[in-house]
Every structure is written in structure tokens, then in C-alpha cells.
């Protein structure tokens, strides 16, 4: 079975979520559960680092779409970092990047989140 782990660094009003493994339905749900838990505790901004998740499927990404919706409805922001070319292309095809930014790394993403 695919191993999927996430590492969370929560600081003030933002959290960095680093996934490790295949983002399928289970991976997507795990990310979503953790972000929703953070949303309920007041965190509004999320940096999702996919450096160690080079493979996704559309079911996992659909769960991320639900998460983006929930974050935006809470007046928050969700951005992605460290996307492979193919995952960035996949997100563009699906239109995700109109609603969630993509940045090369966490520091750039954090700077941009602070400006937004």
C-alpha cells in the first residue's frame, strides 16, 4: 500500500503542509482533514509543498478543489509550492491555479501570501 505522510508547521495565521507520497483519494483526504482542522482553529492561510509528492491523480486533486473552496469561503488563501512541471500542467488544465497560486518554494509563497 502507498505510504502517505504529511508534515505540518503552523505559525500564526499560516501553515506549511509538506506532503510525502501519492496524492490519491487517501492522500487528498489526509491533507484536507488536517487543513480543515487548522481552519477550525483559526488558521486561514496554507502553503502546500508538494516536493515529495510527484504523482497525483484527479480524485486526489478533486479533494484539493473542495479544500480550496473551503479555504476561500473562510477568506483564506491556499497556495502550492515545489510542483513538478506535470503537476503544474495538470493544475492549469483543471483551472486550479486561477484560485490557488503556485510558487517555486515556501519562502516565495510566504512573501506572496503576506502581500495578498
Amino acid at each position: 500500500m502507498n505510504q502517505f505522510n504529511i508534515d505540518i508547521e503552523h505559525t500564526g495565521d499560516y501553515a506549511v503542509i509538506r506532503s510525502d507520497g501519492y496524492i490519491n483519494n487517501l492522500g487528498g483526504e489526509k491533507i484536507s482533514e488536517e487543513c480543515c482542522r487548522l481552519l477550525e482553529s483559526g488558521c486561514r492561510n496554507f502553503i502546500l509543498n508538494l516536493e515529495k509528492s510527484p504523482i497525483v491523480n484527479s480524485i486526489g486533486v478533486s479533494i484539493l478543489i473542495e479544500l480550496i473552496e473551503r479555504v476561500l469561503e473562510s477568506d483564506g488563501k491556499l497556495v502550492f509550492t515545489n510542483l513538478t512541471s506535470t503537476i503544474a500542467k495538470t493544475f492549469r488544465i483543471m483551472g486550479l491555479l486561477q484560485y490557488a497560486g503556485a510558487f517555486p518554494d515556501e519562502l516565495t509563497a510566504l512573501d506572496e501570501i503576506k502581500k495578498m
Partner: peptide, 10 residues
């Protein structure tokens, strides 16, 4: 997005 529909089908 922002509609009560399933997000899948991609």
C-alpha cells in the same frame, strides 16, 4: 467551485 456539485470527472 462554490457550487454544490461533485468536483470529480477530470
Amino acid at each position: 467551485l462554490f457550487k454544490n456539485v461533485r468536483k470529480r470527472g477530470w
